[in-house]
């Protein structure tokens, strides 16, 4: 007696189930980089540098430190690019490198200069010239208070808040980035927001 065994769409034995596709452009740039075109990696850097930098400023604690972290993360990504399997978005992978880099550097280095202090020293933060002056001032004042409150959060709370609110990542992606259960992401976000509400009670109860 013979049994048959259906396998649906199994075909030749050499088909594998689909790999989760990369974002097309990133995949092409990665392939080109691995094929020897470092300029392609330059494109990847330009594509993500500002996004990563903006986030890392709040994670790393200072503008200068964030810049170093971002640079180091890109270098690490370049060096290890062949180990990137494409099962997650390139940026997710890159962010995790940057996040780990930041933590590692913080362990080794002096206490980071705060965003506030650095800004006072360098005046680097630009005003949004598209807004009227009075709006800008009010906006800046709010931003100043919120930033100060943000710095009071624990690192783990600040990180999830930044990833969610500034980068707009969904819980699942944040969980992947930080290697946490989604429930923990949700819980930490709640805690972070709760603290921020407590610190910013006055301004949050006014219309922004």
């Amino acid at each position: 007696m013979t049994g048959t065994f259906s396998t649906g769409n199994f075909s030749t034995g050499f088909r594998v189930k689909p790999v989760k596709p990369l974002i097309t452009d990133d995949a092409e740039l990665i392939q080109e980089t691995l094929a020897g075109d470092s300029g392609a990696f330059g494109q990847l850097v330009r594509k993500y540098q500002d996004r990563l930098f903006h986030t890392m400023v709040h994670v790393a604690g200072s503008v200068a430190e964030a810049e170093d972290v971002v640079q180091e993360a890109f270098v690490q990504a370049f060096v290890k690019l062949s180990s990137f399997k494409g099962n997650s978005a390139f940026y997710t992978w890159l962010y995790r490198i940057a996040f780990n880099t930041s933590i590692s550097r913080r362990r080794k280095q002096r206490p980071a200069v705060s965003v506030e202090a650095h800004q006072e020293q360098t005046g680097q933060e630009p005003l949004d010239v598209g807004m009227p002056v009075s709006d800008n001032l009010e906006r800046e004042e709010r931003a100043h208070l919120v930033r100060a409150a943000l710095e009071q959060l624990s690192e783990e709370h600040r990180t999830v808040l930044v990833l969610r609110e500034m980068d707009g990542f969904c819980y699942e992606t944040i969980a992947q980035m930080l290697d946490l259960p989604v429930g923990t992401v949700r819980s930490r976000l709640h805690r972070a927001r709760h603290e921020m509400r407590g610190l910013l009670k006055d301004i949050l109860q006014q219309p922004s």
């Binding site: 903006h54 930033r147 609110e165 500034m166 927001r193 910013l200 301004i203 006014q206």
Partner: peptide, 11 residues
């Protein structure tokens, strides 16, 4: 409101 403020940070 908190979200709006955080998102309004200069890039």
């Amino acid at each position: 409101s908190l979200r709006e403020t955080l998102q309004s940070f200069p890039r």
